[in-house]
Design a protein around this nucleic acid. Structure first.
Lengths: 144, 144
DNA sequence: TTGCAATAGTTAGCAAAGCAATTATTAAAA
DNA sequence: TTTTAATAATTGCTTTGCTAACTATTGCAA
């Protein structure tokens, strides 16, 4: 019954530490970027010209959240919106030069953080972690 | 490099689904309680008379968050604050009758949800999940 | 005993998550 | 073609997380 042993608690706890570590590392690199902004920024970096809906799906966030994160990224001059040529409801998202520079500066930091988290975790344990996380995700599938 | 394969992404995704499922299940039971409120409510249920600092540590949240969650629980009439007898800076937190009723109503739902999440996950995989989550947590220990 | 640091809790400000409702545009149906 | 439904994005509202600043109380030390 002890709440400290329940896996949701352990997940929450690990996630929070991870986010704090990210924020701390980003700040140390002189960059005022949240972990969530990083996710969206990187998606735009990888797939230039994506619409917000596509970003929403890739980032597994909801539309309003993505709108606001992009608002912030635009304010910081890292990305810009361009009205869709075919479908004028859509925006296409592109990186600015500053945005690319930030990604290139952050990428190794993100990689190092990710590695730090699984330091001394065996490859097989990591595989099981991912498998179970995916399983938990599908176990709560909508419509059940 | 695919972000969908990175463990932080999988954790985030699983957590979000879990929270949604909780909220949905609580609402279906006719209870307007968030997952976060449940955590605090249950801690007060288990340890009657705890101070907010103690709750803060047990819930692994920060002080302002706990203050507000307790504010909400008080508004809903589920718990109440009582000024500390020895140390007048502290509050002691206690359940109301309604609070106890809510916990007793929610407890089986929470248990079922927790079980649903790890449906078809072997005991050994679950053990590894917990071990790795703890490892990630300590790998990001402050002061490193 | 006075003065100062530590502790408990709160308030304020910003970012983010979730949900409902709204606008603008496009697609489908009567 | 006109109406209706679906889609893309936004706005508003509430809750939470995090940081910093603040008040009140307690504990310790000069």
């Amino acid at each position: 019954m002890e709440i400290e042993q329940a896996y949701p608690y352990l997940m929450e706890r690990a996630m929070r530490r991870m986010r704090q570590a990210s924020h701390h590392a980003f700040a140390e690199a002189g960059l005022d970027i949240t972990a969530e902004q990083w996710v969206v920024l990187y998606i735009i970096f990888e797939g230039n010209g994506l619409s917000q809906v596509e970003i929403t799906e890739l980032a597994f966030k909801d539309a309003p959240t993505v709108t606001r994160i992009i608002d912030n990224l635009v304010k910081k001059g890292l990305v810009y919106r361009q009205m869709g040529t075919e479908d004028r409801r859509k925006f296409e998202l592109y990186m600015t030069k500053e945005g690319r520079e930030v990604v290139e500066k952050l990428l190794p930091i993100v990689m190092a953080l990710r590695q730090q988290g699984i330091n001394d975790v065996s490859a097989s344990d990591l595989r099981i972690l991912k498998k179970v996380l995916n399983r938990i995700y599908t176990n709560f599938d909508i419509g059940e």
